[in-house]
C-alpha cells in the first residue's frame, strides 16, 4: 500500500488563523484543501511537508454569492461537484460548470475544491511517478534533480498546466483573491500563473487563494472542450476555453480563447481573438481563428497521447469550442 509520509496536521478554524499558521511555519508547511492532488504526490514523495495546513474547517471559503447580473464570487473551498452542479453557476457560466464536471471522477470532485483545481500542480509523465521510478530514470529538476527529461538541455521545467477550470476562468475574465501575511490582493486569474513547470504560480507559498470573482455574464457565451483518452479520470492533455460576445447581428464584439495543457500555464490566443472581433462567426472565420489559436501551442511529449496529435487537435478543438459558443450547429459538444 502506498502511504503518506508523517506530518503535523493543522486545522485552523478561520482564515486569519490559517494565514498566521502559514506565516509561522514558513516553507515547512503546505496548504491542503481537498487533498486529491497533494496526497498522491505526497505518497509518491514529490512532497514531504513537515506540516499541513488544512483549509477544510474554514467556513469563509465555502460561499457562492452574487448573480449572473452582478457577477459571482465563489469561495476557494467550494467543491468541484458544487461548481459543476450549482444552478447559479451552471446557468450563468455553463463552461465553468462543464469544466469542473470534467475533472477526474465524481468521487474526486466531491473531495477536490475549485481553489485546489486552480492551483493544481503541473504534470509530467516523468514527474508523476513513484520515488523508485524517478530514482531509476534519474530525478528531474522538478523534484530532486537538475535536468529536464522531456527536453534535455532545457534550463526550465516543462511540466504541463493541467487545470480544467483555469482556462475557463481566464476566458471569463475572472480574478482571484489572495490573502497572506502582507494582506489581501486581487489579481486577474491569468496573473496567478507563470510559464514555468516548477514555479507555475505567482501566489506566494504563505498566501491562501480565498475566492474567485466572476464578472457579470453580460451576454458572454462560453464553451470548454477537453481532450483526454477517457471520459473520466484523465487530466486534460488539451483544454480549450472560449468566451464570446456577439452583437445582435451576430458580429463578434469580444472574444477570449484560452488553451490549457499545452504549456506550463494557460495560454491566451490573442492573435486568434483579434481575427474574430468585428466579424460574423462563419465557419471560415472560426477556422482561421482556430488555426491562429493553435499556433503558439507548444506541447511536448510528456502527457498521454503524442505531442503531434495534441498540437493537431488544438485547432480542431478550438474550432469546435468556438462553434459551440457561437451557437453554430453541426458539432457535438465535448
Amino acid at each position: 500500500m502506498l502511504r503518506l509520509p508523517p506530518f503535523e496536521f493543522l486545522a485552523p478554524r478561520s482564515l486569519a488563523e490559517a494565514v498566521a499558521l502559514l506565516a509561522e511555519r514558513g516553507s515547512a508547511a503546505m496548504i491542503v484543501a481537498g487533498g486529491t492532488d497533494l496526497y498522491p504526490n505526497m505518497k509518491r514523495r514529490q512532497f514531504e511537508p513537515a506540516a499541513l495546513v488544512s483549509l477544510r474547517s474554514i467556513p469563509e471559503l465555502r460561499h457562492v454569492e452574487g448573480t449572473a447580473q452582478t457577477g459571482l464570487t465563489i469561495g476557494s473551498g467550494v467543491t468541484l461537484t458544487q461548481v459543476s452542479q450549482q444552478p447559479l453557476i451552471a446557468n450563468a457560466y455553463p463552461a465553468l460548470a462543464h469544466a469542473a464536471g470534467a475533472v477526474s471522477t465524481a468521487q474526486l470532485r466531491n473531495m477536490g475544491t475549485i481553489g485546489g483545481n486552480l492551483c493544481v500542480d503541473t504534470r509530467c509523465n516523468y514527474y508523476n511517478q513513484t520515488y523508485h521510478w524517478r530514482k531509476s530514470i534519474g530525478f528531474c529538476m522538478k523534484k530532486g534533480g537538475d535536468v529536464c527529461l522531456v527536453a534535455s538541455g532545457s534550463e526550465r521545467c516543462w511540466a504541463v498546466f493541467s487545470s480544467d477550470t483555469a482556462p475557463v476562468m481566464v476566458a471569463l475574465g475572472a480574478s482571484v483573491c489572495l490573502e497572506g501575511p502582507q494582506g489581501k490582493r486581487v489579481i486577474p486569474v491569468e496573473a496567478l500563473y507563470r510559464d514555468d513547470g516548477i514555479a507555475y504560480l505567482t501566489k506566494q507559498p504563505d498566501e491562501i487563494l480565498t475566492e474567485i470573482r466572476l464578472p457579470p455574464v453580460d451576454g458572454l457565451r462560453t464553451a470548454y472542450w477537453k481532450l483526454r483518452r477517457r471520459g473520466a479520470f484523465d487530466f486534460p492533455i488539451l483544454g480549450v476555453a472560449v468566451a464570446l460576445k456577439l452583437a445582435e447581428d451576430g458580429t463578434c464584439t469580444a472574444a477570449r480563447i484560452v488553451l490549457g495543457a499545452v504549456e506550463s500555464s494557460p495560454v491566451e490566443a490573442q492573435a486568434a481573438e483579434a481575427l474574430l472581433i468585428g466579424q460574423k462567426l462563419t465557419r471560415e472565420v472560426i477556422e482561421a481563428a482556430a488555426q491562429a489559436a493553435a499556433r503558439p501551442a507548444r506541447p511536448l511529449d510528456n502527457t498521454d497521447m503524442s505531442l503531434s496529435y495534441r498540437k493537431r487537435m488544438a485547432p480542431v478543438y478550438t474550432a469546435r469550442a468556438l462553434a459551440q459558443a457561437a451557437g453554430l450547429n453541426g458539432d457535438q459538444a465535448a
Binding site: M1, G35, Y39, K43, R44, A106, Q107, L108, M111, F233
Partner: peptide, 23 residues
C-alpha cells in the same frame, strides 16, 4: 491508493469519496 481506480470508495455524509485520499 492514488485516487485512480475507485475501489476504496466509501460514503461520507452520503457522498462517495475515496478513502485512500481522506484523512
Amino acid at each position: 491508493e492514488l485516487g485512480e481506480c475507485g475501489a476504496c470508495t466509501v460514503l461520507v455524509d452520503g457522498e462517495p469519496v475515496l478513502s485512500c485520499l481522506a484523512l
